Amino acid sequence: MAEADTPLRFTEVSKSFARGPARVQALDRLEITLQAGTVTGLLGPDGAGKTTLMRLATGLLRPDTGTVTVLGADTRSQVNTVQGEIGYMPQRFGLYEDLTVQENLDLYADLQGLSRKDARARQQELLKLTALGPFGARRSGALSGGMKQKLGLACALLRAPQ
């Protein structure tokens, strides 16, 4: 399978965590190859390793063994390349609640290296998509849970991920 056809590949990936004196095995020799153009669901009970898998795929964690490649880039040696090509929205609200919706969007646009012109155009598109347009001046901490999720999604998608 060509590299362009495999946006995400886990090869013999294992990851464990310390829990007191013991170790908990989150993933054990995981093998996954996703094909481009497909939708894949990640389902499982609490503690099955779903969040660990996502953090490994984004380069936020390193595998104990094995390799993770995203769009052909190794998450160990090319983490900046990986993070520059994907959009990641964490499970919990990770934005600044004392900033307004617009200020959060501006901050994330700056962090992602977008020009002011490109940022404004993309922000308008995302504000419309998420129906957050009328709330640009509202402090993020005053948003409902669902609106916070929408803002998190908009921030994750500012630089259109592959």
Results as ranks from 00 to 15, higher is better:
residue 1 M to C: 00
residue 1 M to N: 04
residue 2 A to M: 12
residue 5 D to Y: 07
residue 6 T to H: 15
residue 7 P to K: 00
residue 9 R to C: 15
residue 10 F to R: 11
residue 10 F to H: 09
residue 11 T to A: 15
residue 12 E to I: 06
residue 14 S to E: 03
residue 15 K to F: 00
residue 17 F to H: 02
residue 17 F to W: 03
residue 18 A to V: 01
residue 21 P to H: 09
residue 21 P to Q: 12
residue 23 R to P: 06
residue 23 R to Y: 08
residue 24 V to A: 05
residue 25 Q to K: 07
residue 27 L to K: 06
residue 28 D to E: 15
residue 29 R to W: 05
residue 30 L to R: 07
residue 33 T to M: 11
residue 33 T to V: 10
residue 34 L to G: 02
residue 35 Q to T: 02
residue 35 Q to H: 14
residue 35 Q to M: 15
residue 38 T to S: 09
residue 40 T to E: 09
residue 40 T to W: 06
residue 41 G to R: 03
residue 41 G to P: 12
residue 42 L to H: 01
residue 45 P to S: 10
residue 45 P to I: 09
residue 46 D to T: 15
residue 46 D to C: 14
residue 48 A to K: 07
residue 49 G to N: 09
residue 49 G to L: 04
residue 50 K to E: 09
residue 50 K to P: 01
residue 53 L to W: 00
residue 54 M to F: 08
residue 55 R to N: 00
residue 55 R to G: 01
residue 61 L to R: 00
residue 62 R to V: 03
residue 63 P to C: 14
residue 64 D to I: 04
residue 66 G to N: 09
residue 67 T to Y: 03
residue 67 T to C: 11
residue 73 A to C: 07
residue 73 A to S: 13
residue 74 D to S: 14
residue 76 R to I: 10
residue 78 Q to S: 10
residue 78 Q to V: 01
residue 85 E to G: 06
residue 86 I to V: 11
residue 87 G to I: 01
residue 91 Q to C: 11
residue 93 F to V: 00
residue 96 Y to L: 12
residue 97 E to R: 09
residue 98 D to W: 14
residue 98 D to P: 03
residue 99 L to H: 04
residue 102 Q to L: 12
residue 103 E to R: 13
residue 103 E to K: 11
residue 104 N to Y: 12
residue 105 L to P: 00
residue 107 L to W: 07
residue 109 A to C: 07
residue 110 D to V: 13
residue 111 L to D: 08
residue 111 L to N: 10
residue 112 Q to A: 07
residue 112 Q to Y: 06
residue 115 S to R: 13
residue 115 S to F: 14
residue 116 R to W: 11
residue 116 R to L: 06
residue 116 R to C: 01
residue 118 D to M: 08
residue 118 D to A: 15
residue 119 A to Y: 02
residue 121 A to M: 03
residue 121 A to K: 04
residue 121 A to S: 07
residue 122 R to L: 04
residue 123 Q to M: 13
residue 123 Q to K: 11
residue 124 Q to D: 12
residue 124 Q to G: 09
residue 125 E to W: 06
residue 129 L to G: 02
residue 130 T to Q: 05
residue 130 T to W: 01
residue 130 T to D: 08
residue 130 T to A: 10
residue 132 L to D: 05
residue 133 G to I: 08
residue 137 A to R: 14
residue 138 R to W: 10
residue 140 S to D: 04
residue 141 G to P: 05
residue 142 A to L: 09
residue 142 A to S: 10
residue 144 S to G: 10
residue 145 G to I: 00
residue 148 K to Q: 07
residue 148 K to E: 04
residue 149 Q to I: 10
residue 149 Q to M: 14
residue 150 K to A: 14
residue 153 L to P: 02
residue 153 L to T: 13
residue 154 A to K: 01
residue 156 A to R: 02
residue 157 L to S: 06
residue 158 L to F: 07
residue 159 R to Q: 12
residue 159 R to H: 11
residue 160 A to W: 03
residue 161 P to A: 01
residue 162 Q to S: 14
